[in-house]
Amino acid sequence: MTLQELEAVAVTARVGLTEEEKEIFPEQISQIISHIRVLDGVDTHGTAPTYYPIKQAAFLREDEVEPSLPKDQALANGPDVVDGYFRVPRIIEEE
């Protein structure tokens, strides 16, 4: 993986990289990828993927309203709270 590819992935993941990381990650990640490509040699024809370690029916909850958090608790951990809202700097892209 090149540094350029790595930086693109880092933007997708919204992870800032330090200079040191930019230095060491490409080599490390290339090593990891080359190691995990051992899976290419495994015959998985006709094998279903395992998404869940145990088989169980989906859990369904009844449609009942339960108490929400007290507002002060809901906001207590907010890094920037204004008038009962969480504030963020301007949003430069739409959803």
Binding site: A48, P49, T50
Partner: peptide, 10 residues
Amino acid sequence: KALKVRTLIK
């Protein structure tokens, strides 16, 4: 691919 190999390990 990994999820399929997970099946084989299981």
